[in-house]
Design a protein around this nucleic acid. Structure first.
Lengths: 349, 349
DNA sequence: ACGGTTTTTGAAAGCGCTTTCAGATAGCCA
DNA sequence: TGGCTATCTGAAAGCGCTTTCAAAAACCGT
């Protein structure tokens, strides 16, 4: 290597490196590194000199070099089905909270409810060298877990519970069943479901199953024409409820996969001259910002996204740092009662 | 360095590196690198051997080493005021779209409408070695631009226009003025504003200024009691409109900083027995998902978030790759007319 | 078959940081 | 002050990849 004399090193274009700081402070790069990290066992005068030199030069350590050397990238990845979905955004935001405190960065990616895409995105993150990975749900591409295992980094699944893998979530079937039971307690007998896409989506699937089982447990059944699967969003909710009405005998209550869908269903119901909750009770999922303000305010299953995120973040950090972490954390979902649910009309048989 | 004999290298715990692939394919690491990247000028048989070896071993290049070597981190950072805000999420999502196509990763951070925090987060990203940076707005911590400049990476500001810095955005003052003019054309004379926090927020500030100027241009003025600043969200909108009514003579129309705020204002108006748009016209900002479905559907200024994101992404990629890029891109905001606006009542003077 | 090209290829030098290891210093007690 | 221990410190070896440079191999026209 061509070793330049010390005095011509202030090349303007080059951003300063540890070597420059060392030179300026009259120490070695080893000492610079010690000061800028743990500081353990460096004499005060040298430490100050290094600090000042770093300050003066505006030194910023090169993350790649540090990552290469420590084998720690100081980042964790998260792949969520839809990065624009409120619930996932909240989780990402709270995971990031925790990570940030531990000095880690969150890199989020979008899987678009597609297993292949999820695999691609996860692989991409793995290549980047993330130190941990957060996924949503328990259904993934068959190769995904093998790939994660090979990379040797910790992984945690969220939003649903899993027998196989570390997870932070809740029992989607049970919480949806609770909503169904609540409706049946009110006297409803014809209960419908409008869910988002269920393909490769264990949360959606489990919720419908839970509802069907709760109905069965009381001798009722989820009629096929009352079991609707649509795309997410308010428009989806309208379409879904329209389809349901087209099916014949209308339900007296519907449970929806998200509050957006519930909102859409309510709009469509009103457009058809049905009053909520008079003619139709509606329950959503997620407790979105707007839900308390709808007309009527929406009964919904609140998912504690922030708690899920915090727990998932803590779990990953712990395992990255070699500390023990619980394999399964259950964060209970909560049924928030508002005015969109009521007993069915007497004549609704 | 202790050079292990070639035959004991299948240590299970260690993930494979280029050296392993090279050995298995009977080539040098240089060739491995050539194959895995550009592939230029490698004989077909060797190329295949490398490909196969990499496949067999499940080789994944170490991103940190690559970044260190190429001086490219292949990631760009984005710092937005609120990562849970719909408009910013949409921009992030569309920036990521573009970056992903170019092989780059997006790392998003949250500044919480605080200049110090924004500086901290941006610095954090800079330390990571991001190759480019996206910011929101034209008001930043005094040290921020210096720091970015020192790191030598391209930066682009979004959502507003700037004289000083590269930007992709729109004229917040002009678009808000357009809304005000529309209301005045309908005959409104008492127009109010409910904006989110304006501190260190040039978008919010510019909108109010634009409205005030539009009013002034027609001999009207924005009464102080009709100029309300609140926190974001539906609750904020309700509070804001309540405050406005407490101010004395009620306005016949309000322009709100977001559709959430507008929604809140509409709720509060109705609670006070005012009909929209009969007694009060309401205009929002952003054209949120739910806005067409409100009752009445909300007139709003649609911000083309996806276009902003795409343009910002393209701009950064171009500059990272050393290609020229336009300094200022203006993405027009659009006034979407729906049913929440109408002429004022005749007797509303 | 041979000299001159044109391709391919591998050795080795980094990229900038951390960390080990041994030597240098400082501190302490007698 | 000397000797021994406890602290500090710097040289140097990596981390795993890319890339230059020169040597080796393949190709070509005669």
């Amino acid at each position: 290597m061509l070793d330049l004399p010390d005095d011509i090193l202030e090349l303007p274009g080059r951003s300063p490196v540890a070597r420059d700081v060392a030179r300026r402070a009259g120490v070695s790069t080893a000492t610079v590194s010690r000061v800028l990290n743990g500081s353990a066992g460096v004499r005060a005068d040298k430490r100050d000199a290094v600090m000042r030199a770093a300050q003066d030069l505006g030194f910023v350590a090169n993350g790649a070099a540090r990552a290469l050397s420590t084998r720690r990238f100081m980042a964790v990845g998260a792949v969520v089905p839809n990065i624009e979905n409120e619930a996932f955004v909240r989780v990402l935001s709270s995971v990031q909270d925790r990570l940030r405190q531990a000095g880690y960065t969150l890199i989020a990616a979008n899987a678009g409810y597609d297993l292949e895409d999820e695999l691609r995105e996860a692989t991409f993150l793995l290549e980047r060298g993330v130190d941990g990975l957060m996924l949503v749900g328990d259904i993934h591409h068959p190769d995904l877990h093998a790939r994660i295992a090979r990379s040797g980094i910790p992984m945690v699944q969220t939003f649903s519970l899993s027998q196989e893998h570390p997870c932070v979530g809740f029992d989607n079937a049970a919480s949806a069943a609770r909503a169904a039971n609540y409706l049946m307690d009110l006297g409803h007998r014809r209960i419908g479901v409008i869910s988002g896409l269920r393909k490769d989506n264990d949360r959606g699937g489990a919720r419908v199953t839970g509802i069907a089982q709760a109905l069965a447990a009381r001798g009722l059944r989820l009629a096929p024409e009352h079991d609707i699967e649509i795309s997410y969003g308010i428009g989806g909710g309208r379409d879904g409820f329209r389809q349901m009405l087209a099916g014949g005998v209308p339900p007296t209550a519907v449970i929806c996969g998200t509050d957006q869908i519930a909102f859409g269903a309510m709009i469509e119901a009103r457009a058809r001259g049905l009053s909520v909750p008079g003619d139709l009770s509606v329950i959503g999922h997620n407790d979105s910002d707007f839900s308390p303000f709808l007309d009527p305010p929406l009964t919904t299953i609140r998912i504690h996204s922030a708690e899920i995120g915090h727990a998932a973040g803590d779990h990953l950090i712990a395992r990255i740092q070699g500390r023990p972490a619980v394999r399964l954390t259950e964060i209970d979902a909560e049924l928030i009662l508002r005015a969109s649910t009521a007993p069915p009309r007497r004549d609704a048989g």
